Amino acid sequence: MASTTLPTLSDVAKAASVSSATVSRYFSNPDSVATKTAERIRQAVLETGYTPNRLAGSLASNKSQLVSILIPQLAPSLFIETIEALVSKLSSAGCIVTVGVTEFDAAHNEALIMAALAYRAKAIIVTGEVSDEVRKFIRQSSTTAIEIWDLPEDPIDIAVGFSHWEIGRSLAQFVRSRGYTRPHFVTNPGPRGIKRRNGFLEEWQTGTGCDVTESLMQLPFQPGAARRIFAEIQRLEERPDVVLCGPDWMAQGLIVEAMHFGLRVPEDIAVIGFGNSAVASEMRPTITSVDIDDQRIAETIAEILLNRDRGEEIREKVVNTGFKIIARESA
């Protein structure tokens, strides 16, 4: 029968002919141990089969390397490129990254936040709104809270993102500069989508005085959404000459529907996406889209966490990473 006794840190120290304190230092900061000593410890770990108890260490210090990222939906999702960049950057910095899916449910979102706090997470990265009560819990903790993909006026702790209202304004200016006169705006009913819509409408109506037709997306995003939106467009008295979508996958779906009904993109109807995902540059026609600097968001967050670890004050609580419109074939 196999032994149920787990190897201990003392077993590793004995096998490596060093003190337990040296082994502990090796696990917490390998660079602080001499190269030859570190190699003996590494070999002793392999021989004994020892696994350090990171949870015990985090409880003792009231800190951990756990970073919890919360997103509303895994697929299809606007956040995928940002999440991939974050996981890559934070993992290389020694963080243990978990991703929680809130399913657009405020109660579930807050339950995941409270669970992360209970595990003494190093940081919680959120993409949704948080109640005043939970904001208070976060602020009373030692956990760094980072709101991404937006620029809230009163961030819980730190915000790294961009202005959705400014994106809406810039899209209106872009559409006007391309000579379009009958825009149709597909609105994501979430807070960020509403800001983009409002920014677009304000800029468009100020500049032209013309009405904008609209469709409302449904949450959570569902397959077939583009087909439903295109059917609504087909029923309009006058077909729009440009459609401003939510995510790029919606733009892709609308282009497929338009081509199915014999419409040319962009000659008969232009389409603009959001997020500048890989599909935007690979699709034919390529999709005009709003580019989000995912790498800069990830690098900024990693730097913030590193500075917090050093005990440095974070002076810039709201970081605007900006955006840009990538003009391609679809509009």
Rank of each mutant, 00 (worst) to 15 (best):
H260Y: 08
V318N: 00
R139G: 11
V212C: 12
T35I: 14
I146C: 04
G57Y: 08
D11G: 04
A280N: 03
I158P: 00
D211E: 15
I96G: 03
Q173R: 07
H260D: 03
T82N: 12
V12I: 03
A2S: 06
L70K: 06
L117N: 08
P189S: 11
A298C: 06
R196A: 15
G100R: 05
S32D: 15
I269K: 01
I301N: 01
V265S: 07
I304A: 05
D241R: 02
N198T: 10
G193L: 13
G311L: 01
T4G: 02
S58W: 05
I41L: 14
R25K: 12
R239S: 14
C245I: 01
R228S: 15
L112G: 05
T208N: 10
S20N: 14
L90W: 00
I325T: 05
D150F: 02
E214Q: 14
Q140V: 00
S131M: 07
T208I: 06
R315Q: 12
R40C: 09
I272Y: 02
K63D: 09
D105L: 03
A38V: 04
R284L: 08
I255D: 05
I83R: 03
E133D: 13
N188Q: 10
T82K: 00
H184I: 07
V45I: 15
L244C: 13
I326V: 15
G190Y: 06
S77Y: 05
I138G: 10
L70R: 06
D248I: 04
E329M: 11
L59Y: 12
I156L: 00
L305S: 08
T288D: 02
R120K: 15
S77G: 08
Y180R: 08
N29V: 00
V265W: 01
M1R: 07
V318W: 01
M217Q: 15
A2P: 02
W149D: 08
N62K: 15
P76A: 12
S177R: 05
K63W: 06
F185H: 07
E39R: 15
E313Q: 11
P266Q: 05
P76R: 07
R192P: 02
A93V: 02
V33C: 10
I292S: 03
P240T: 10
I138E: 07
Y50R: 11
L112E: 06
R264A: 13
H108F: 02
Q252S: 15
I301G: 03
P52C: 14
L244A: 02
S142H: 13
Q295A: 13
D268A: 09
I269G: 06
T143M: 03
G49D: 14
I41K: 08
V130L: 09
F174C: 09
R25G: 09
S92H: 08
R284C: 07
L55K: 10
S58Q: 12
G168N: 02
S277Y: 00
L151D: 04
A56H: 10
F162A: 11
L112N: 11
I314E: 01
V212A: 14
G273E: 03
A123Q: 09
D291L: 08
T213V: 13
P52T: 14
L78M: 13
G179S: 05
L244Q: 09
H164F: 05
P191M: 06
P266L: 03
P191S: 11
A93I: 04
Y50K: 13
P155L: 01
D157C: 05
D11R: 04
D132F: 10
V256Q: 12
R196Q: 15
E202H: 15
L86M: 08
E312T: 05
K317V: 05
